[in-house]
Structure formats: structure tokens, C-alpha cells
Simulated assay, not measured.
Amino acid sequence: MHIKGVILNIAVMGFLDIPGLGRAHYHQYGTGSKPLLAFHGYGMTGRQFHVLEKSVLTAYHVYGFDHFFHGESKLGDWTGQQIIEGMPKPMVKAYMEEWFKQYGRQRFSVMGYSIGANVALILVEEYADLIDDMILMAPDGLSVYKGFQFLTYQPIGKYLFKRVTKSKWLAPALLKNLKKVNFIDESLYHIAYNEIDTEQKRQDVYYTLNLIRLLKPDTTKIAQLINRYHIKCRLIFGRHDNLFPMKAAMPFIDKLPHAEVHEVDMGHWLVTKQLDEYLVNLQQ
């Protein structure tokens, strides 16, 4: 099906007005013709995947969405309490329905990195019969990450998370200790540190993780759908990733006999030129 508004080498932007949720901003780029809806990691924007120019962007036309509290996406008239309660999972389907209104109901693919993988997985859960490919990098959502669970569900964790958000020194101290015990690597430490150096940024962290806390993919159902509809899967993990390592995702991977799984010699920070070269070399 023809995709309206494709501009091959020049990134363009657009918005989806999602009833009851807000205005989702997206970036378009890539020289391929296959539509690919992409969801970035924390602290980035929908342009994050532009570095995969030799591998992914030659095959796909990317629609890279900014998460709320990132880029130009704007949550609607939600109160702080509504944000903390979380975005209902069915609202993910509203993304797709609004996209269909703009571009027509058609086949598409999905891609997600880190926390963005949750949205990509839920789209597979809802639209498996229309999806060609799924690409996940250092994905959240394939297993329960106890750190996020503690911060957004457990009373003591919720209390501490809120305290850290308000404090100028607690958040940096916490990050330093996480790096000290090798829970996060040096590159992830610097990225995270740059996201907590102001009160506004710390509040955005707090709101982002609470907003998405209900977006939990049903991995058993998703695996069944992937096998039933023969969705091509590429799963990429960092060998030195302590946030979302491959071993935690093995129960899901074991359900996918035809998945293409890679563990690369990198940490959590995967969406780089180095990964682009790795993927290109796979094709040769």
C-alpha cells in the first residue's frame, strides 16, 4: 500500500492526536518503503534509530515516536495523580488506530529499544495479523524487571522514588552506588546522570516510569501469536547489559524456535553506529 508523505533522505515530522491521551509526536526517516513504528529508550526521542542507517533504514520507512515527557509529545490534561496511576494498556491500541486514520490500514513492522520495547510488544499482542517484522534491542517487557516493579508498585519503593525526585543529592548518590556495584556501566551512568541534573528532569523520570507502569506485555500470548503468524523476529542483547540481559528473556526466547537472537559485545547502550555495522555484516 502506498505510504503518504514518504521523504526518503529528509526527516519529516507529524503528530497523532489520541483521544483521552494526548498529542504523540513522531519523526519519519529511512530510505526503505516498509512502514516501521519505532519506540525509543528513556531520555531519547523518536530520532534515536537514525544511526542504524546502513542496516535498518535501507529496508524501512521509520515512524519514530517520542514518548510522553520526551521530545514534542504532549500528554493531555492529566493530573499528577492520573499519571502516577498509569496509562491504561488499551491506549496503546489508540496509537495504531490514529496512525491508520492517517496512512490507511496496512501491514507494518515494529521496533523498540529498552522501555520502548513494551509498546512494540503490545502492538504485536493487538495486531499480530498485520505485522511483518519485530526488532527489539535490550528490551524491557520480556521479563519482570524488579527495579521498576519496586519503584512503581511497592509502597516503600514508591515513597523512595518520590523522595529521590525531589532531592538534589539523593538521585546522583543513588546512581553512583549503582555504578559502583556494576548495576549500570559507565556510559549508562553518564546518560542517566544527565537526565537527573534538574528538578524538572527528575520529575520527568518519575512521571515517565509511572505513566508506563501498566504497559505489561502478555509474553505467552505474544509468543503464540508470533509463531502463528510467522512474524520475523530479531532480538538483540548486550552481553554486558545488567538492566535487561538476555538470560532474563530466555523463557520468552525458548518459545520462539525461529527467532534471530544476538548477544553483542556491548552494554545496555545498543543503538549506536557499532550496532549498525554489526547488523550490516550479518547481511553479507
Rank of each mutant, 00 (worst) to 15 (best):
L243A: 00
P217F: 01
L270C: 01
Q274K: 11
L75E: 01
T208E: 05
Q149Y: 15
I131H: 04
E263L: 09
W99K: 06
K34H: 14
Y278E: 04
K89M: 10
L57T: 07
L8Q: 14
H262V: 04
Q48K: 01
N194S: 15
I10F: 05
D133Y: 03
G86T: 03
R213P: 03
R213A: 04
G141K: 12
L16Q: 10
Y278K: 05
E186H: 09
E98I: 12
N182L: 06
L279E: 04
D276I: 05
M246Q: 10
T208C: 09
T198N: 11
H262S: 08
D276T: 05
G71A: 09
M44C: 14
A59M: 07
E260A: 02
L174A: 12
K221V: 08
Q149P: 03
I7K: 11
R107D: 11
L57W: 07
F244Y: 09
Q28D: 02
K216V: 11
G147C: 04
K247E: 00
A248E: 12
Y206P: 08
L160P: 00
G76E: 07
H258N: 14
H67Q: 08
K168G: 01
G43S: 11
P90V: 05
R163Y: 05
L178Y: 11
L36C: 06
K89P: 07
G157W: 01
H70Q: 09
L211V: 02
K146W: 04
H25V: 02
F150Q: 10
M87Q: 10
Y193W: 13
G46C: 13
G71Y: 07
Q28K: 15
M246D: 00
I135Q: 10
H230C: 02
L211M: 08
G141S: 09
V280G: 01
I226M: 05
L243G: 00
M266T: 03
M91K: 15
G157E: 05
P90W: 04
E126V: 02
Q102A: 14
I135F: 12
K179Y: 08
